[in-house]
Amino acid sequence: MTPPPEELVRPGECHVWTARAVSVRASGAPALLKLLDAGERARYEAFLRDEPRGLYLTAHALLRDLVGAQLDLDPAEPSFAAVCRTCTSGGHGKPVLPGSPLHLSLSHAGDQVAVALTYAGPVGVDIEEIGRVGDPPLTVLSAEERAAYDRLPAGERAGGFTRYWARKEAVLKATGDGLSVDPALLTVSAPDAPAALLSWAERAQPHPPVRLYDVPAPDDYAAAVAVLGDGCRVVRHEVAYDGDGVLRRPRRAGDGVLRRPRRAGD
């Protein structure tokens, strides 16, 4: 894949790509499957249903396409590792590219996937489908967040909770903690305010400064990206795979710049 110059990640930038999952019901998307390594293909085959297979395949093929383009490699060439802070069993955890300064993260929900790449620091991206679950698990909200949530009009609560959750997941992915940390310990800004990590209970300084950004997402989805370190320019791209496995760019989805995001303790 030869990307336009504006799709190459430069220092001080974080790029986020979103795409709709391919269907694997008919042919199994062989052009994308051939990009995966043996371990990825085994995990793909382990899914019992077509929908999660399509999400997994799209996310990992897109990650390979983007990393290959960024590093001028064949997409099948990069060798990824998964790092989990809470165990050593391997095969799961935050994806890393050993020996490279490029940081990466991926997420999927509903029929959408998201991939983030940056040189700015450890990164976490999360995309969530609004209203995917019935009654949201409000215990993941801090007291401050719950108070703001309760003030929302009934028709805005599903979207508000999903934005809270996407922001928290993005932070926990960036730090590498994942859900080993109770999300209620984090307090992020209210859904109608610019994204920010306001506090992290029980951790005075758990990591470098957290830069948290909302990411434009398709209708009925919320997405966020967190980067540890200096502030950066966030650029979002919307792409799609066609039937022959070629990555298309139907339109430039836009970008956003948050030069002075808030951090815990500001």
Rank of each mutant, 00 (worst) to 15 (best):
S107T: 10
E144C: 08
A61H: 08
V24S: 01
L97A: 13
S23G: 13
P95F: 04
D126G: 06
L186A: 09
T162W: 00
E128Q: 14
R252W: 13
R157Y: 02
V227H: 06
T88V: 09
G176W: 01
C84V: 12
P95A: 08
H108G: 10
C87Q: 11
G28V: 06
G134M: 09
C84N: 08
A195R: 05
E13R: 11
R260M: 05
E7S: 04
A46I: 05
L62R: 03
L71P: 07
E40N: 05
L32I: 09
G124E: 06
W165I: 03
G265H: 12
G99C: 08
S189G: 14
G91Q: 08
R132F: 00
V171H: 06
P136Q: 12
R64C: 03
A148Y: 02
A59R: 02
P137R: 14
V67Y: 05
P183L: 09
V171M: 02
E169M: 09
D74I: 02
Y44R: 01
L62E: 02
A81M: 03
V22G: 03
P52W: 06
L55E: 03
R151H: 15
K34C: 12
G155K: 14
V234H: 00
Q205F: 10
R41S: 14
V234D: 00
V181L: 13
R146F: 10
A29R: 13
P136N: 13
D220W: 00
A143I: 14
E128H: 06
M1R: 12
T18E: 00
D150L: 09
V22T: 13
A204I: 13
V239N: 07
H108Q: 07
P191F: 09
D126K: 04
E7H: 12
G231N: 08
T175F: 04
A174S: 13
A42S: 15
L73G: 08
A184Q: 09
D242Y: 10
L33F: 05
P78F: 04
Q205W: 10
E144A: 15
K168C: 05
S199P: 03
L228V: 11
P194V: 13
R249C: 10
L33P: 02
A29L: 00
H60Y: 11
T88H: 11
V171L: 00
V22P: 02
L247P: 07
S142K: 04
L71F: 01
V215I: 15
A193Y: 02
P101H: 08
E51T: 15
S100W: 06
W200C: 12
A174Y: 01
R211V: 09
R260S: 14
E13W: 07
L104K: 07
G229R: 04
Q70I: 04
V239T: 13
E238I: 00
Q205L: 14
A42F: 01
P216V: 03
A170F: 10
P191Y: 10
L8A: 04
P95N: 12
L63T: 11
L141H: 03
E238L: 06
D65F: 12
